[in-house]
Design a protein around this nucleic acid. Structure first.
Ligand SMILES: [Zn+2]
Ligand SMILES: [Zn+2]
Ligand SMILES: [Zn+2]
Ligand SMILES: [Zn+2]
Lengths: 142, 142
DNA sequence: TTGATAAGCTACAGTGACTTTAGATAAAGG
DNA sequence: CCTTTATCTAAAGTCACTGTAGCTTATCAA
């Protein structure tokens, strides 16, 4: 039986995060010692590792929930798992595209400013006026 | 004098978001009609446009706050504005790098699965075992 | 057995940048 | 005057955690 700190160390997950996963039903409720501390089986460690690895690959907790459900029923077809992964791939590709457009704009504004006063700062000028941009960027955030 | 809905339409910002910006001190408190509705000057519209354009380019609200402060003092050197933009550029480049590594892994796992049962699903296999990966991905999320 | 230290517990607030909801009030046009 | 549209406040919800406070349990040496 493993203590929560062991799971934490073995998977690089904060202890609070493990408790959080339990709270939202992603991890099963762990057994407890007489004093109330959580104790885990190796299969719980495996599940946590799966969750963390999926997070590292950018999957949302909702997607991970689906993937875990599928993984628990080995007889089904894996079409659904594959489609979740393909969706994730498309999202990543979209993000890369968007970020590359941002990179281009940022690079240009930084390059074109020669560091004079704020009044002539190219960076601030572009931020004030989108018509100075080469690309459209209608979505917000990262 | 412009109503909040006009600012909303002209900048593509939700009305609530404009009120949120006021609440956190990013937009000045607007004047009010006798009935308590907000009324804006064109300079407020410009400020909001600046904020939204900066958000589209991925700047955080904290960075935008600094940029607005600088923009309000035209006599200073723009070194700080430029450095904020360069920092943003570096961040974007980092993100692109990370996402490209994710893309590679996702592409590979999707490509290598031939859609048999869950038991042999390459996607799930990789998620279970990071040693199947070609790259390290220690940070989490996007 | 004692006592120190490390590890764990709950409960709740905070993060960023909003979005959503509910219920009430104001403005504008016919 | 009436209806419709716009606006108001206040509070909770989102995502995926992280941090804090104040306490209890487990472990090991002396
Ligand atoms: Zn400059
Ligand atoms: Zn632009
Ligand atoms: Zn598969
Ligand atoms: Zn991996």
């Amino acid at each position: 039986m493993l203590a929560i700190g062991t799971l934490s160390r073995k998977t690089g997950t904060k202890v609070q995060t493990i408790r959080y996963y339990e709270q939202i039903g992603l991890m099963n409720e762990a057994g407890r010692t007489s004093g109330g501390q959580r104790r885990y089986y190796v299969k719980d460690l495996d599940r946590l590792a799966f969750i963390r690895h999926s997070r590292q690959l950018g999957f949302s907790l909702d997607s991970i929930r689906e993937l875990l459900d599928l993984s628990d029923n080995p007889s089904q077809s894996c079409a659904e798992a594959d489609s979740i992964a393909r969706r994730q791939l498309r999202q990543v590709e979209q993000r890369i595209k968007r970020l590359q457009a941002l990179k281009k704009e940022l690079k240009r504004m930084v390059a074109e400013c020669d560091g004079e006063s704020v009044a002539e700062c190219k960076v601030l000028e572009v931020l004030r006026d989108h018509s100075e941009c080469l690309t459209n960027h209608d979505e917000i955030g990262a």
